[in-house]
Design a binder for these strands. Structure first.
Length: 150
DNA sequence: TTGTTTTGTCTAT
DNA sequence: ATAGACAAAACAA
């Protein structure tokens, strides 16, 4: 990881991006305070727009490292449309595996937001979130709010 | 509602 | 090999 910087919007904290060879390798959601990003690049720009509700999909160069199973899960998660949710069980069914295994893979997601694992919820509750449930709640509400807007 | 069992994958012995 | 941990779900009572 050769660079990282931070950005703050109104959310629970700030978003930190880690790069390698110019590609985003890890996205970290924290609860610290921080200012806007000092480094401007496409990934920051897109995430900033996303957090303002002005952008509904993220697409920038990333490096994804994980087991083949995890990659399979993450790929499926990336298909979930903005503002919509799916349950661990439904996702597991699509992949021919178990909800428990899906949760485990999502927990390991190195690129939250880019891989929108916040859109995966439990059948009768929110389910968990590696960065903490408040972030999940925030992201779901953000998308619910901006879903209708152009 | 609450426990208890079932479940696939991963990590660490 | 095998045992234990999980961002879950299904079931019994």
């Amino acid at each position: 990881m050769d660079q990282s910087t931070k950005m703050l919007l109104f959310p629970p904290g700030k978003v930190v991006l880690y790069f390698e060879k110019g590609k985003v390798k890890k996205i970290s959601l924290t609860y610290e305070k921080g200012g806007p990003p000092k480094e401007k690049n496409e990934a920051y720009f897109q995430i900033e727009e996303y957090l303002k509700g002005k952008r509904k999909s993220l697409d920038f160069p990333v490096i994804i490292e994980g087991t083949s199973f995890e990659k399979k899960v993450w790929k499926e998660v990336k298909k979930i449309p903005y503002g919509e949710t799916i349950t661990y069980g439904e996702l597991a069914k699509k992949l021919g595996t178990s909800p428990r295994a899906v949760g485990k893979a999502l927990k390991n997601n190195p690129l939250p937001l880019y891989i929108p694992c916040h859109r995966v919820v439990a059948k009768n509750s929110l389910g968990g979130f590696s960065a903490g449930v408040p972030w999940k709640v925030f992201l779901l509400q953000l998308e619910k709010f901006f879903k209708k807007v152009d």
